[in-house]
Every structure is written in C-alpha cells, then in structure tokens.
C-alpha cells in the first residue's frame, strides 16, 4: 500500500516527527511504500541541516535523510512555511526538497492513505 505522511511540528519540541518516523519505518518493514513525507507548519524545521543534537540523543534530521536515501522516500518541505521560518535551499538537509503545497494535495490524491502527525 502507498502511504503519505504529513508532519506539522518541529523536531525535539514535539513527538510528532518521532512518531511519524517510527510509523514510516514500520510501514516500510511491512513492505509498504512511503511515497512522500510532507513537512508543514513548524514541521519544516525537520529539514534544517544546521541541527546539532547532543551526542547521546537521536538525530531526527539525519534519520529522515537516511530513510530517504535507503527507501527513496520523497521528503518535501512546504516552501511558504519554510520561508517564514528561515528554511532555504542553503540550509536544507540531504534528501529533502522544497516545493509547494500542491505536493501535499497530490499526496492526498495519489496515496492510499495519508496520516498526519502534529499537535
């Protein structure tokens, strides 16, 4: 089955990105496809390559990048929400791309299920 995921909260501040990641990993493990993860609202902060968590903590941003690389997951950051919050091409982590809100609507149309994680 084709899954789409929406993340509305930033990393570390809220559990949303963690829950979404573990959901995505479990879906992939079951042989499903995670077609797109769309980052909206403060969720765009998950795409900052300037993030530096302490050594003993999980690296939320790097984890998404790795998932994108290994499973060809399309990580899309909403351009309008990103610009508001200072996320641009120059500080975008690997595997993420910036695009429009249409990508979220497209995920809703193309995916069998769309699951939202937020506050």
């Amino acid at each position: 089955m084709k899954f789409g995921i929406v993340i509305n909260e930033g990393p570390y501040q809220h559990q949303a990105s963690d829950s979404a990641y573990l959901f995505a990993k479990a879906a992939l493990a079951k042989g499903h496809e995670v077609w797109r993860v769309f980052f909206y609202h403060d969720g765009v902060n998950n795409a900052s390559r300037l993030t530096e968590p302490p050594q003993d903590d999980r690296n939320i941003v790097a984890r998404w990048s790795k998932l994108a690389e290994e499973h060809k997951v399309d990580l899309v950051v909403c351009v309008a929400a990103a610009l508001r919050r200072g996320i641009k091409e120059e500080n975008l982590a690997q595997g993420f791309r910036i695009s429009g809100l249409g990508q979220l609507v497209e995920a809703g149309i193309k995916c069998d299920r769309l699951v939202t994680f937020g506050d």
Binding site: Y40, H41, G100, L104, V105, E106, I109
Partner: peptide, 16 residues
C-alpha cells in the same frame, strides 16, 4: 498559526 496555514492548503486544493 494553524488556522492561517490550513487555509493556505485549502486554497491550493481548489486548483486540483
């Protein structure tokens, strides 16, 4: 900001 950004998605969805 949720209400405002939600409205932005709605307006885009109209185009689809």
């Amino acid at each position: 900001i949720y209400a405002l950004e939600s409205l932005e998605v709605v307006l885009i969805t109209a185009a689809f």
